[in-house]
């Protein structure tokens, strides 16, 4: 009886599809990476040293937010989404308009951000924050 020597199987790894696999992984990671960019409403606070400048009354657009989140614009109650148009109109009439947001300390921070957002959408440049009476 003759035992046949086992013939060695050719041991090469198929390398041609390796790059496909690698690129697939690469693209998968590229797509799933979420860049958490920092987003926010920027504002420059007044400096503590600079004395408050007197502002002509006709240049002030006063927006008040009360404790319940009700917004009044120059004494008139308005809905938050309509602030943008009102502010745009005022800036067209008078480009020196300064928007003053007076928020009640008992109010939520959210309301101030909502109003600030509307004013920013209206492209107002001069914005001041003020805290209402405690």
């Amino acid at each position: 009886m003759r035992i046949k020597k086992k013939s060695r199987v050719d041991t090469t790894i198929q390398g041609s599809s390796m790059s496909d696999v690698a690129f697939l992984l690469l693209i998968f990671f590229l797509v799933t990476t979420i860049f958490n960019m920092e987003k926010g409403l920027s504002l420059v606070l007044p400096n503590s040293e600079s004395a408050p400048k007197p502002i002509a009354k006709e240049n002030i657009l006063e927006i008040k937010i009360d404790a319940a989140g009700i917004v009044t614009l120059d004494g008139e109650q308005v809905a938050i989404p309509s602030i943008r148009d009102r502010v745009t109109k005022r800036i067209l009439e008078n480009d020196k308009t300064i928007c003053v947001i007076e928020t009640s300390p008992r109010s939520y921070y959210k309301y101030m951000v909502d109003v600030l957002d509307e004013i920013k959408l209206a492209d107002a440049r001069k914005i001041t924050l003020r805290t209402g009476k405690r």
Partner: peptide, 21 residues
């Protein structure tokens, strides 16, 4: 509460950290 935020902003104004977001 907005009061809390206003207090923090006051603290920031004191040290001239005026750029906020």
């Amino acid at each position: 509460s907005y009061e809390r935020m206003a207090d923090i902003m006051e603290e920031l104004k004191k040290v001239n950290a005026t750029k906020v977001s």
